[in-house]
């Protein structure tokens, strides 16, 4: 096994990290929890690197707090902290549910939400929840900071739109309001890899007996995580009755580009599950929204 990395850098601020990336060029790679990257390096899927830039000791990335009228979740917050956070459970239940199910306890103590998004897998549980919650990612680059919609961070399966000299700082989520709630559910294959066959996250706001607003994310929906907008339209403004749900499922299936993944699931099974999970998560979010 060749040496997997030569230098291990531990910046204490975002600016320091950006400078390290800029100086080292392509030879440097960011490491957060490292629970994917370490395996990729050890198993030869990622070529050895000159420098690893460990961003887990940057206080800004570890913050999880209300800022103004938004919830900020630092990109370097470990998943266990996200899922256990009372703030996340109050304002972003789908994210708490998603991060609480990912991998195992020890992995979740180091794996980060930023890593889950940056790894850019089409069905990443954390990213799917963030999409439904309308999160915006804060990206730092040598040119400064910007906030981008989550969907803009993806180029293709496993390909992040983040440039080499950029990094995720955190995620901004709208605070919950009256009669709004979210839910997440996934189905795994017991024999298989730690990737879901399908997952679904839903956020909705109620107005009386109708859904006033809804966001739905399904993974893997296509090559990159994105929202199921046709199903959203089918549900928006309606009561989630059988006819509306049927229409939403139909819309979802028309829009989705499900594929057969060998040893994981066929397209047919995914199409079937998509309807089941949509009904379940809409139902759960609806129920939660009425509890307010």
């Amino acid at each position: 096994m060749p040496t997997l990395w030569h230098t291990y850098l531990r910046p204490k601020t975002v600016e320091e990290a950006l400078q390290m990336l800029a100086e080292a060029g392509e030879a440097a790679v960011l490491i957060a929890g490292g629970t994917d990257l370490m395996l990729d390096l050890q198993q030869g899927r990622h070529p050895p690197v000159q420098a690893l830039v460990d961003i887990t000791e940057i206080p800004e990335l570890r913050a999880l707090e209300i800022r103004g009228n938004e919830l900020f979740v630092g990109a370097g917050v470990p998943l266990n902290r996200v899922s256990a956070s009372p703030l996340v459970r109050e304002h972003a239940m789908a994210l708490a549910e998603a991060t609480g199910q990912m991998a195992g306890y020890q992995i979740r103590n180091v794996a980060t939400l930023g890593g889950n998004v940056a790894h850019a897998l089409p069905a990443a549980d954390g990213a799917i929840a963030l999409l439904a919650l309308d999160a915006r990612a804060e990206v730092a680059s040598p040119q400064g900071r910007r906030r981008v919609p989550l969907a803009d961070l993806y180029l293709g399966p496993g390909r992040s739109a983040l440039k080499h000299e950029e990094m995720l700082v955190g995620f901004w989520l709208p605070l919950t309001r009256q009669k709004a709630a979210s839910a997440f559910r996934r189905v795994m294959r017991p024999q298989g890899v730690a990737l879901p066959i399908l997952n679904t996250a839903v956020w909705l706001a109620r107005e009386g007996d109708r859904i006033a607003q809804i966001r739905i994310a399904v993974g893997p929906f296509g090559p990159v995580p994105r929202r199921a907008t046709a199903a959203e339209s089918a549900l928006c403004g309606h009561a989630p009755d059988e006819a509306t749900l049927n229409a939403a499922v139909e819309a979802l299936l028309r829009e989705a580009r499900f594929r057969t993944s060998r040893y994981r699931a066929t397209e047919t099974y995914r199409r079937h599950l998509a309807g089941i999970l949509l009904r379940e998560t809409v139902g759960k979010a609806w129920e939660r929204a009425s509890g307010e």
Partner: peptide
């Protein structure tokens, strides 16, 4: 104080 998997934990992070 937190349980971690030491087989994928870079030694230098433990510094």
């Amino acid at each position: 104080g937190e349980a971690v998997l030491s087989c994928i934990y870079p030694a230098e992070r433990a510094d």
